[in-house]
Design a protein around this nucleic acid. Structure first.
Lengths: 344, 344
DNA sequence: AAACTTTTCGCAAACGTTTTCGTACTATTT
DNA sequence: AAATAGTACGAAAACGTTTGCGAAAAGTTT
């Protein structure tokens, strides 16, 4: 290392006491005389002593660390949730080890193995896949874990998510209420349950209002915004006769916006656009995306709270919290006259 | 804990050997017979053994962990840099402990103390303040550290940053070349050196081209986008006779965009706007911000590389790497006719 | 067959703490 | 003055590893 770090034994030597006594002075034990405590505190200050958390963790059998596995910190939704999680963790004296899974189940599994090996007290994970749990189960059975942003149903784990079905229904209903009768759903609908539920909510709402669900789906995972834009272009060139697009995600909606721009299609004048997640950039002027909001701070706070409770009381049974989404109305959706429908 | 974790001693007992032998089998030592190694590996697999990194760290005197202190993971620029840092760290077998300083020197210092106490092998820090180094010095003198996004000059530390002066000069020059003669600089210019250098680059370029530097400064720190927008509104209502705004930051530029929108001022038709950082959202259609790019991946990669080198060879002398910014031209700046100038 | 090497393994120390237990000393009670 | 209780501290074990050293067993050379 740089400089030899000063240990508790160094302080003890300087103070002329055993290191047990130093430990007690610092931990605020009562088994110590008042004036020796002060003297030791003084000396340890002067020597710049700081306890070795690694050694402490080894004996205490807890690291005061939680692992966070997310797919991509770059996503505004994710980074905002991460912000709140770090805040909560810090408040409770926990540190955060950050792992990007890159939406790969292999890396996700590697991250979980790493974290358990590092003896983290708990793990918060935004699963990469609908089979994440099965893959991860052998590794997380030994560590308190809470999943976020996915409804884990009856799986033996805690989770916190929003009601994606309801969110999608609300969005569809809103578009219907504005007079839209041909609404295209833009985004993946298979794989993760959250995706399926959103698609289902849209689909069921459509049927409820007498509309035909129309999906622009794709089988492969999409990562770059360029890919999203290309897909949106395909939609504009192939699909006929729709007045609104309900995007899976604000990021997807942004891709639609981009493609629309390229086609000279105006939002909301020519077409209405609805997003999901309410990332901060959706509030930007000229973007002004109407969207379904996820309560990110609440997700983070309840996830951390649930995790800490499980850490404290390992025998607590698993809980699933499903928070409510809400509609944030901005300027990307427009009321249309029923008789005339624009043909793209 | 949940379930009692299986330790190396458990494996040893099951295999009927000493735990030393198990350790050797797993570490790939040559001091072990081939068939015993296989047998032990087999057994440890079956028992689901995973080494306790905490214990290993204690004896090895290294944690394979690096601490990252940033002001706010929510910022697109920061989260992108973080993404690349995590990638590089992972590649080299290091984990990342994430701390948000919230731009507070107090929390920054607390984070550094925490990280050193946790025996991280190194720290990467985006300083909150121009006095961060002095405050932090006593704590980081024992841990390899590299600062990012700030030129630390002659201070005894490694750092990697970009040439902010040059970036600002380039931006000003570009605006000048488009015919702009009244350019307002929007953003803080005191405190951190990076801010000062940007302001200075702008200022010097202005003088070089015979223009008068015009600053919209503010003494207090600004955090929310609402505050930025309010400030931009003030600018539009108070300042007269300017044709271009050079914003400190893309985020600041977004605020200008928002305020301009409210005033009915069009970008770039009525006014040109230039940003700094090139965050992903600047590339959005309808935003299309011309900006000065920071090479985020290069910043992250060199920061990690420098840190790992210092960890490996503690005696390496401090290095400062200053990377080159570049101009990314989009659609927020417009060539104007010299004789007529728009009055706001 | 004796004298070496080499291979394979175990013992024990070490990493820096916390905590249990024991003990010397002081203070209080009988 | 003897017995008891309380206070202040130290010794040692424990947490789960890695590693230097030594020793037994096996193989090789003379």
């Amino acid at each position: 290392m740089w400089v030899k770090r000063v240990t508790i034994k160094d302080v003890a030597r300087a103070a002329g006491v055993s290191y047990t006594t130093v430990s007690r002075a610092l931990s605020g034990s009562s088994d110590i005389g008042e004036e020796t405590r002060k003297r030791i505190l003084q000396i340890s200050q002067e020597m710049g002593y700081s306890p070795n958390t690694v050694a402490r963790s080894l004996v205490a059998q807890e690291t005061k660390t939680i692992g966070l596995i997310i797919s991509n910190i770059t996503s505004p939704f994710t980074s905002e949730v991460t912000w709140y999680i770090e805040e909560q963790a810090w408040l409770h004296g926990y540190s955060l080890i950050l792992c990007n899974s890159c939406s790969s189940v292999e890396k996700e599994q590697a991250a979980v193995e790493l974290l358990t090996s590092r003896q983290v007290d708990g793990i918060i994970i935004h699963p990469a896949d609908d089979q994440s749990f099965d893959r991860l189960f052998p590794y997380i059975s030994t560590t308190p874990t809470v999943f976020i942003n996915e409804d884990m149903g009856d799986l033996p784990t805690s989770y916190v998510t929003i009601d994606n079905y309801k969110g999608a229904w609300m969005g569809t209903e809103y578009l219907y209420s504005l007079g839209h009768r041909e609404i295209v759903y833009f985004g993946r609908r298979h794989g993760k349950r959250s995706r399926m539920m959103r698609a289902q909510g849209y689909s069921d709402a459509c049927k409820h209002f007498g509309l035909t669900p129309r999906f622009i789906d794709y089988p492969y995972p999409i990562s770059t915004s360029q890919q999203v834009c290309d897909l949106a272009r395909q939609m504009f060139s192939k699909e006929q006769n729709f007045t609104a697009v309900f995007a899976n995600t604000d990021l997807m909606a942004l891709g639609v916006l981009q493609a629309a721009d390229a086609f000279g299609i105006r939002v909301p004048e020519d077409i209405s656009l609805l997003g999901f997640n309410n990332i901060v950039f959706s509030a930007l002027p000229k973007i002004n995306l109407t969207t379904i909001e996820q309560p990110k701070q609440a997700i983070a706070a309840t996830a951390v709270a649930m995790l800490l409770e499980r850490i404290k009381f390992p025998k607590t049974e698993n809980k699933g919290r499903v928070l409510a989404p809400s509609l944030v109305i901005r300027d990307s959706c427009r009321r249309i006259d029923l008789p005339s429908q624009r043909t793209v």
